[in-house]
Amino acid sequence: MSDQLMPYPDEILYHLMRNFSLPQWTILELLTRAESGELEDHEKDPTLSLTDLHDFIKLSQQNFRAQVALLHGSNAIALVTGVTDQRSKNVVLTENGRRMLELRGN
């Protein structure tokens, strides 16, 4: 995606992810599962609509929006305009988000 920043060095990623909460990690993992086609009732697609993501994670709307904003601010996810509906927003995992998940596993 052209609007994404260059991948951050690992030191910066560690700094950003040190305060990630369980809902934030869950969002990143759901996006990884969506990319690989592992989500039930969701075809293999690297994006999830905000509505679909909210339905999977089951947080209050206010808390969900806060978690998405924090992940977006740390460049772990990107928000892209929907293809069929320009009013909708889809969420996609960035290279930084993938690397954060890898670093978390170490």
Rank of each mutant, 00 (worst) to 15 (best):
M1K: 13
D3I: 11
L5T: 02
L5I: 03
Y8N: 11
P9T: 06
P9V: 04
P9M: 11
D10Q: 10
I12H: 06
L13K: 01
H15Q: 15
R18C: 08
S21Y: 01
P23V: 11
P23G: 09
P23S: 11
Q24G: 10
W25A: 09
T26C: 13
L28T: 15
E29D: 11
E29K: 12
E29W: 04
L31K: 10
R33T: 01
A34T: 14
A34C: 11
E35K: 15
S36M: 14
G37E: 09
G37A: 15
E38K: 14
L39H: 08
D41E: 09
K44F: 01
D45N: 13
P46G: 01
L48N: 12
S49P: 03
T51Y: 14
T51S: 13
D52R: 09
F56L: 11
F56C: 07
K58Y: 01
S60Y: 08
S60V: 04
Q62W: 03
F64I: 07
F64N: 06
A66M: 09
A66Y: 04
Q67S: 03
Q67V: 00
V68E: 01
V68N: 00
A69F: 01
A69N: 07
L70G: 02
L70V: 01
L70H: 03
L70A: 04
L71N: 05
L71S: 07
H72Y: 06
G73T: 03
G73D: 11
N75A: 11
N75I: 02
I77E: 00
V80C: 05
G82C: 02
T84F: 02
D85F: 15
D85L: 14
R87Y: 03
R87N: 05
S88A: 13
S88W: 03
S88T: 10
S88V: 04
K89L: 09
K89N: 02
N90T: 02
V91L: 04
V91R: 02
L93F: 04
T94S: 11
N96M: 02
N96F: 03
G97Q: 09
R98W: 08
R98E: 12
M100K: 00
L101G: 00
L103R: 10
R104K: 07
R104E: 08
